[in-house]
């Protein structure tokens, strides 16, 4: 695979430090599964953070703290799940899935298992359930040769291609490529002819107004 469009330093630092909200993190982690280049950059950032961590001003600890820890160890207490990335039992599959982890778990399966909802004009989507409400994530299927439907967004948008490809102006985005756009970017992605394009799209969640009047005005004011 030849990935041309990579993660920005900002997104990678956010991933490495843990500041990214769930939706962004999902797109970044899924890109990382496909992109050794960005993983090498991530490793460098984590190592740099590890160095900073070595030189942090230490805070004194009570002697009883270690006794308590020893007691917990003797009691055979297991940690909570916070381990670094570790090889687990390899999953045996006949052919590798198209959708990598962690996205596959969020969707509940690979391409063949998905239940698409029509958006009209041959486009489909699947909303992805996130615990975090500040971002919205969904899988999009854009018909070959057609533009991405209902495309207006106020904030940041991440688009990660999983199958097929799309053009945005001069730029081609294929499997593994990630496009980062903000409100200032006017763009019109068009799926490449020949194959439907499947991608993960994450945006800032639309503002939710408690007043029905404001909700009614939302489409008019485009907020």
């Amino acid at each position: 695979m030849n990935i041309r469009h990579h993660l920005s330093d900002e997104l990678l630092v956010g991933f490495a430090s843990g500041t990214l909200e769930e939706g962004w993190r999902l797109a970044v982690a899924t890109h990382l599964a496909l992109c050794p280049n960005c993983r090498a950059r991530l490793t460098l950032m984590e190592d740099a953070a590890g160095e900073l961590f070595e030189s942090i001003s230490p805070v004194p600890i009570e002697v009883s703290s270690f006794d308590r820890l020893k007691q917990r160890i003797r009691n055979g207490e297991r940690n909570r799940s916070a381990s670094p990335r570790q090889p687990t039992e390899a999953v045996k599959m006949v052919s590798p899935p198209t959708i990598p982890e962690p996205l596959r778990t969020y969707l509940g399966g690979d391409l063949a298992d998905l239940k698409w909802k029509s958006l009209g004009r041959g486009a489909y989507h699947i909303p992805i359930k996130l615990a975090d409400r500040s971002t919205t994530a969904r899988l999009l299927r854009i018909p070959a040769g057609k533009p991405v439907p209902e495309h207006s967004h106020g904030g940041r948008e991440l688009t990660l291609v999983l199958r097929g490809s799309f053009h945005d102006g001069e730029l081609l985005f294929a499997r593994g490529d990630i496009e980062e756009a903000d409100a200032s970017v006017e763009h019109q992605p068009v799926a490449t002819p020949g194959q439907d394009c499947i991608c993960l799209a994450v945006t800032d969640a639309p503002l939710r107004f408690s007043s029905w009047f404001m909700r009614l005005l939302q489409p008019v004011l485009r907020i």
Partner: peptide, 13 residues
């Protein structure tokens, strides 16, 4: 949640 990639996923590159 804290989504992360899985080095043992068959789709992992």
């Amino acid at each position: 949640r804290r989504p992360d990639f899985d080095v043992n996923d068959p789709a992992f590159v």
